[in-house]
Computed example of a mutant assay.
Amino acid sequence: MATAEQIKALIKCYAEHDDTRFYRVALQLAAEQARKGHKNVARELRQLVDEAKAQNAVVQPTRGPVPITQPRGELEGVLTASFPKARFTDMVLTPEVERSLKRLLKEHSNGERLRHHGLSPRRKILLAGPPGTGKTMTARALAGELNLPLFTVRFDGLITRYMGETAAKLRLVFDAMQKQRGVYLFDEFDAIGAQRAAQNDVGEIRRVLNSFLQFLEDDASTSLIVAATNHVEMLDQALFRRFDDTICYENPDAQLAAEMMKNFLAPFDLDEIDWDELGNLAEGMNFAEIARACEDAAKDMVMDDRAQLSTSDIRMALQERQRKPTYSPRSNRT
C-alpha cells in the first residue's frame, strides 16, 4: 500500500499540475509494489504512467496564466519575467512568517472590498533574514498564489557608473509597475538601500536611494513590491516606514528542519527515518542547505539502486553539507 506521505504527494502534484513529479511518485509506487511481489499491479501502474505521458505529448492543455513577453527596450537588461508555480505549501515557515503571509494573501483576495472602504491591501513588503531562509522563494510563492508574473530587478543592469542613469532606469521599473501588475522583486536590496551616512557611501548610490524612497512613497500601482535583504542592519532607517510590512526570517529549529526534510523527501519511502535525530542535526542550517542535503541523499539512493532512504543516508548528506565553506558551524553561530 502507498504510504500516507506518498498519497499526500500525489494529491499535491495533481492540484498543482506538476506532471513530472506526479509521474515520479507513481513510478516510486510501482517500484514498491514490484519489490513486494505484486508484479501485475506494478506493471499496470507503469503502463498507466506511460499512457498518460503519451497523451500529454499529444494534447497539452493551457494551464494557468499565458506566458508573458520578456521586458524589451530599456527594461530588457533591468527586469526578468517569469510565471512561478511555487506555492506556500511548498515551503516550511515559522508560525510568525506564515501568519504574515496569510494576512497578505487575505488582504489581496479581498482587495476590492478594502478599496470600496477607502483601504488598500499591503503591497510594499520587506523580507529580512540570513541567506537561504526562503526570502526569494517567498516572492516566487506570492506570484504563484496570486497568479501574477514575477519581475526580478537585475542590479547588474540597473546600477551604472553614469550620473543619473541608474535613477532613470529605476523610474522605468516603477513606471512598469503601473502598466503591468505583478510581483516586483528587489533581491539583495542592500545594494541600493544601505545607510546614506555609511563611511563607504558613494554619491551616486545615495542619489539612487533618495530616488527609490521617493518612487516608493509615490507608488500607487496595484503591483506588489518585495525587497529582500540578508543585511537588514545596513538599511537606511528611512526605508522602514515606506514599507507596509517587514517580515523577518531565521534559520529553522529542529522541528522545522525535520518538517522540511519530510516535505522535500515525500515521494520516497520514509518509514524508518529517525526525524528527531535528523532535525537536531540540521538545526541552525538554512533551508537551502537542508534541501541540497536531502537532494544529495535521494540521488545516492537512486544511483546505488536501493529501495529506500535510511537515517544514515540523510545524516551523512547533512554532515557533508555542514563541512562546506558556505555553512557556518555551530561554534560560529550568533
Rank of each mutant, 00 (worst) to 15 (best):
E217S: 11
R140S: 14
N251F: 00
E145R: 08
L256V: 02
F174Q: 04
M163L: 14
L224V: 04
N210I: 10
Q214E: 11
A141I: 01
G279W: 02
I273F: 04
R140Y: 12
N210S: 15
A227Y: 06
P267K: 07
L213W: 07
V226A: 08
K169M: 07
V173I: 12
S223F: 05
P149K: 14
R171M: 00
N280M: 10
C248P: 00
E165F: 02
L172I: 03
A238M: 06
G279Y: 03
Q214V: 10
D201L: 13
M234C: 03
F155H: 14
G203N: 13
T222D: 15
M260H: 06
D245Q: 14
I273K: 02
A266T: 01
L235A: 03
P267F: 02
T246D: 04
L170C: 03
R242D: 05
M260I: 05
V226I: 15
N230F: 02
L278V: 12
F189D: 11
A176K: 12
N210C: 04
A257C: 08
I192H: 06
N280P: 00
I225D: 01
A238K: 09
G203W: 11
L148A: 07
L213G: 12
M234S: 06
A238P: 01
G193M: 05
L158F: 10
E233P: 01
E272F: 12
N147Y: 12
Y184A: 01
Q178M: 02
L265C: 07
F186G: 04
C248L: 10
R242C: 10
W275T: 01
F174R: 04
Q255P: 01
E272Q: 15
L172T: 01
Q178C: 02
R242S: 08
L142F: 05
Q178F: 00
D219C: 06
E250M: 10
I225R: 00
F186Q: 02
M261I: 02
S221L: 05
R140T: 09
M234A: 06
G157E: 13
R241E: 07
P267D: 08
G157N: 08
N200K: 09
Q237S: 13
T152C: 12
V232W: 00
L216P: 08
T160A: 11
D276R: 07
A197D: 14
T246F: 04
E145F: 05
G279K: 09
A191I: 03
A194S: 14
W275G: 01
A228T: 03
F240W: 12
G144K: 11
S211E: 14
R154E: 07
I192W: 04
E250S: 15
A191Y: 01
R196P: 02
A143Y: 12
L150M: 12
D218H: 13
N280A: 11
I192G: 01
I247R: 06
R196D: 12
A141T: 04
L185Q: 06
E277S: 14
M234D: 04
L142P: 04
K262S: 10
Q195D: 12
I247E: 12
F189S: 05
A228R: 00
D244G: 14
A258N: 05
A198F: 05
T246H: 09
D218A: 14
Y249I: 06
V202D: 13
M163E: 08
F264R: 13
D187H: 05
D175C: 00
M177Y: 08
R181M: 12
R206I: 10
K262E: 15
N230Y: 00
A143L: 12
E165L: 03
K262W: 03
R206M: 04
F186L: 14
E145A: 03
